[in-house]
Every structure is written in C-alpha cells, then in structure tokens.
Design a protein around this nucleic acid. Sequence first.
DNA 1: GCTTGACCCTCACGCGACGTGAGGCACCAC
DNA 2: GTGGTGCCTCACGTCGCGTGAGGGTCAAGC
Lengths: 250, 250
Amino acid sequence: MDDMTTTSQHTARMELTVGQVAERFGVTVRTLHHYDAVGLVVPSARTHAGYRLYTDADLARLATVVTYRRLDLPLDEVQDLLDGDGTAEEHLRRRRAVVVSRLGELTELVAAIDRALEREMNDRPATTEDLEELFGDGFGEEYTAEAEERWGDTDAWTQSRERTGRYTKADWAEVKAEAEAVDAGLVAALASGEPPTSERAMDAAEAHRMHIHTRFYDVDAAFHRALADMYVADPRFTRTYEDRAPGLAQ
Amino acid sequence: MDDMTTTSQHTARMELTVGQVAERFGVTVRTLHHYDAVGLVVPSARTHAGYRLYTDADLARLATVVTYRRLDLPLDEVQDLLDGDGTAEEHLRRRRAVVVSRLGELTELVAAIDRALEREMNDRPATTEDLEELFGDGFGEEYTAEAEERWGDTDAWTQSRERTGRYTKADWAEVKAEAEAVDAGLVAALASGEPPTSERAMDAAEAHRMHIHTRFYDVDAAFHRALADMYVADPRFTRTYEDRAPGLAQ
DNA sequence: GCTTGACCCTCACGCGACGTGAGGCACCAC
DNA sequence: GTGGTGCCTCACGTCGCGTGAGGGTCAAGC
C-alpha cells in the first residue's frame, strides 16, 4: 500500500501527458504526436487508455529537440544528433551555412523586387496620388466630378478618359511640361500686343489645339473655337489664364 | 492549297509545343504542365493527339507569370494579378514586406545559431585541434600511440581516457594551468636546496600526486612512488623536468 | 512498311513539419 | 447520468513542382 502510494505519487509527479508537456515546452500537442510518429521523441509509457506519458528522460530528449528546432535544424538532423551521428557543432555549422546562403538569396530578391517596383512605377498608369503630386491637391476631387456630369456623355470625354487612363506618371509629367510651354506661348503672344490674327498668336493657338488634340481628344479648328468660347464663359478658366483671356477666342 | 500552306506555316511559326516553350523561357516541361493544371497558363490549342500548343497570347501570359515567379510571388497572387485583382505594385509591395520580414527572421536565426555554437565550443569535449592549440603540435600523435601500447590495458589508462574524454577546452585550460603551478612548485622546492624529505618538497610532491589523482586517474602514495621511478627512467620525462629530477623520487 | 529515338501525354506519389478537422473514448465534477 | 475537457487515431491539406511509370505520337532512315 505504501509502495503503491509512493509509486502513484511518483507517477503523478514525474510523468506528464501531452497537454502538460506541450504547454511546458511551448509546442502544440500535434507536434508531440508528430515527434512520436517519426520516432524522434517516443514517450516511454502509456496509460491503459493509451494516453502518452512523458518521463523525465523523455522530457530531456524533447528539450534537446525543441532547442535545435528553434535553430531551424531539419528533424532528421536533430535525429542524427540525438543518435550521436556527428557533433552538434558540425550540424550547426552546416545549418549556418545554409541560412547565410538563403540570406544572400533573399537580399538579392529584395533588390530584384525593388527594381521591378521601380519599373512598375514608371510604366504603369499613374495613381491619384501621383497626379496630386504633379498638379496639386485640388486636382481630382470636386472638379472632376462636375466635369463628368457636364461632359460625361460626350465622345471627347470618353476618348479622353480612355487615353489618359493609360498615361504613366512620366507621361503626365510630359503633358504638364507641354501644357506649360503652350500657356507660355499664349501669354507671350498676348504680351506682345499683336492682334489675335497675327501669325504669332495663330501659332500659339494652334499649339494649344494640338496639345489638347494629341494628349486628350480629337479637336479640329471649329471645335477649338467653341472650346475657347466656353473657356471665356467660365470664370474659373479665365482665372487660370488670369491675363486678358478674350484674346484667345481668336 | 496556298491558303493551307500559309496556315501551316503560320501554325509552325506561332504555336509552340511544351518543349520549345520550356526551353525558350528557361522552365521545365513539368512546370508548364503544372501551370496548365492549376489554370494559370492554359494553352489555347491542342493537336489531335493532345499535344499542348501555345499561341503568342499564351506566351505573353506565360512571360508575365515567369517574371513574377522570379520575384517569388506565390502562384495564386500571380493568378490574381493576371485576373486584374489589385495592381502589380500592391502585390510587389506585399511580397517585399514578407521577404524583408523573413530576412529579419533569418538574421536573428544566424545570431541564434552563433550563440549556440559559442556555447557548444565551451561545453563540448575538446577536439584534437583544441588540444594542439593548448599544448603544442607535438601532443597527440606519436606519443599517445606509444603510451596506449604501453599502458593501454591498465585500469589507470582506462580511467584516464574515460575522464579526459569529457573534458572541455575550458577544462583542459584549467588542467594546463594547474599542471604549470604544480611544476613550478616542484622546481621551487628543488631550487631551494632543501632535502626531498623537507616539508616543502613533500608538499610539492603531494600537489603533483593530487593533480594526477583528480585530473586523470586514482593514484595513491605507493603508486606515485612507482610513477616517480618510471619518470626518472625515461629520459623524455627527465628532459621535461630538465633540472635535477631524481629529487622528485622522494 | 517497320523500327528507332526524341518528344508528348496522363496519372500519381513525394517532399517538410506539422495544421486542422472528424469521429470517438477517458476522466472528473456535479 | 450528464456535461465539459482532454486524449486518442486516422487522414487530408499545404506549395510548387520533381520524378518516375506506363504508354501514345512523330519524323526520319532502312
């Protein structure tokens, strides 16, 4: 009886079930099952109901396994280690070499991804942020909504949308530069005091037409005149061209 | 007929079989089969015998897949990309984040392995190189072989081997320091000119006995005397203790 | 017409280290 | 006896193919 009690206490103290072991070592029950299945850590006892019971020796072995697994050694190498095939140092050095080599690969990979991103940024349709960066924050929001409402059902609008949708950030930068050059031409023509029918003014107006034509939607001379009238009628456009705008209406 | 020829030529030029495609893109045939199976790149035609035929469109699609796969994007993300779910930039950025995070883990892992190696070097039985580093190159080779032949079947030898086999590099360093201290004691005792029976000489001899006793194998006073005689008989030992050795024979 | 390679096909298992149920006993407390 | 928790044993899924096995197809040379 005394002996039995002792034994019982002993068992209670020394032999743990999967759940207890799992919690103690910070691994899952499934992992313990797995180690058992592959013969890496086989609990040396079972209850009559088949519950795994881990003795101190089992726990010591498991501790080793867990330690080396934290270093990402493959299970079969851990197996070798426990079986005494080769020293721990050998295995660790091999593992280190593998990991370091992998580190190199990943570093190169990040560089490759960066290069791809770089290309992507230059070849891909620009994002709203890109446009705001180029044209200022007021760009897309309210104005585009209003514009869509006013001209959304016109051919010019559709065509413009289709074309600008494919513009990259680089493209938009070109467009911007071109627009500035065109505006500068118009302003210069006005500043010169020459009449709107002068060659210089005509050239500047034609440059403006071509700008719209090539960059946004087809526009002939007639359409361009209609456009000019509309610009004049809208105070926001005239404000944009601050200096005496009516001269642009040819 | 002319039309047929043209068509035939056309097919020959434009539609490639798996092997040709594989070579062109530097992937394996199996990979193409796989992409077909998962619906990533499904060749749009087959011969009557069931051979896959890749059209230009298929090749273009494949090119995209190969490109992104080189960046290690998972197949399903490449799938999403081709289906237009999300921009390439998004996917690349996500991938970059994953890889960078993995880089961090691996760096930490290397550090962990290094720490483990460090511990290993200090706790593990010393290697032959370690010993040569400590005791000089002449250590193990010829002498150990001869010693093994002479005393290999004695208890002292067995015991010594068993114990020293577990000595770490650090342990050996201690042994070396202790041995030097003991030798210094003996030399000092002799140098003092006191007789071998003097307290000082006795203490030094006892220190020598204890050194052997604790570090290598059990040795009592009688055995120690026998050992001393042997040392004297062997010129190599006397050379080691250069200064008048007979005094050590108590 | 027959053979011989080279090329193609479709299964189907393997890998590494478990995750994740499914279906069913075992144990303890009420 | 009943409910909750813990344990058990299958067994499939993961990810991107590699690697045969077993068997048709095609163009070329005899």
